[in-house]
């Protein structure tokens, strides 16, 4: 029985013109179950984001297999959607038409698009802001739009590349709660890349620690905290023990050169 998302021996080297090639992923293996929330933490530049781009179909690995639901990933597809770190909203489009972007490209009729975007705008709590432009929104609101846009095409897999990194601490806490609520409601498989161990534990079923570049899976931690999670869990002994364990694993990768 193979996993829902399965990566085997994935290798990817960037070859920028006039510069030394950079090995981003080396013999990278990963297994993700359907409906699972998996976080990936690792030192900066370890290839976490690269892997999400490979899954999204925007980057092609040099070798190795990546399968999703038994099918090899060949390019972008509507079964996957990404929430981008710097939101990636089209500044010349309103909230509503940003949310509808994927549906528009899929050729969905205007009426259906309106219905879907309205439902998602409600879900992320942006009712009343449909005709606003991104520059009129706060960071947290922008990322809600980014989330609604990713959910609009109803993907099976949600890829999140440090989605809350650009937000202040309080907004981030709030967005984490929202994300868990939406995840429980929408039942998606989520791959969540972050630098914050707290965030990874709080959200995930499992947390993967990656080595420094070229990135490999170093260790995977199962997070057995009960769901639904609440904010108080973050101060429990169990939570902090996990945090320390993951930190110790990560520390070697950050400090060793």
């Amino acid at each position: 029985m193979s996993a829902y998302i399965q990566g085997r021996n994935v290798n990817l080297t960037f070859r920028p013109p006039n510069r030394r090639p950079v090995r981003a992923l080396q013999n990278f293996d990963i297994d993700v179950n359907e409906g699972e929330f998996l976080s990936i933490v690792g030192p900066s530049g370890c290839g976490k984001s690269t892997f999400l781009n490979v899954l999204l179909g925007l980057a092609k690995p040099d070798s190795g297999d990546i399968m999703l639901g038994g099918k090899r990933i060949e390019g972008p597809g509507t079964d996957r959607a990404m929430v981008f770190q710097e939101f990636g909203l089209l500044p010349w489009r309103t909230v509503q038409s940003n949310v509808e972007l994927g549906l528009e490209l899929k050729g969905v009729a205007t009426e259906t698009r309106r219905e879907v975007s309205q439902r998602l705008i409600e879900m992320v709590g942006l009712v009343g802001f449909e005709t606003h432009y991104p520059h009129e929104l706060s960071g947290g609101m922008k990322q809600r739009v980014g989330l609604a846009r990713a959910l609009a095409t109803d993907p099976d897999v949600l890829l999140m590349d440090e989605p809350f990194a650009a937000l202040d601490a309080q907004t981030r806490d709030l967005m984490q709660v929202e994300l868990l609520r939406i995840w429980q409601e929408a039942k998606k498989t989520v791959l969540f890349v972050t630098h914050q161990i707290d965030e990874a534990i709080y959200l995930s079923d499992r947390v993967m620690v990656m080595t420094k570049r070229p990135g490999q899976a170093k260790k995977i931690f199962a997070i057995d905290l009960p769901r639904p999670r609440d904010y108080e869990m973050r101060v429990t002994r169990e939570f902090n023990d996990l945090k320390l364990e993951i930190w110790n694993e990560l520390k070697d990768e950050i400090t060793s050169r």
């Binding site: 999204l56 179909g57 959607a81 990404m82 710097e86 990636g88 089209l90 972007l101 490209l105 899929k106």
Partner: peptide, 16 residues
Amino acid sequence: RVLVNVVRSFGASEWD
């Protein structure tokens, strides 16, 4: 480039 990647991720062609 990020915006190009955003629309590409939704399956956009070069024309899109």
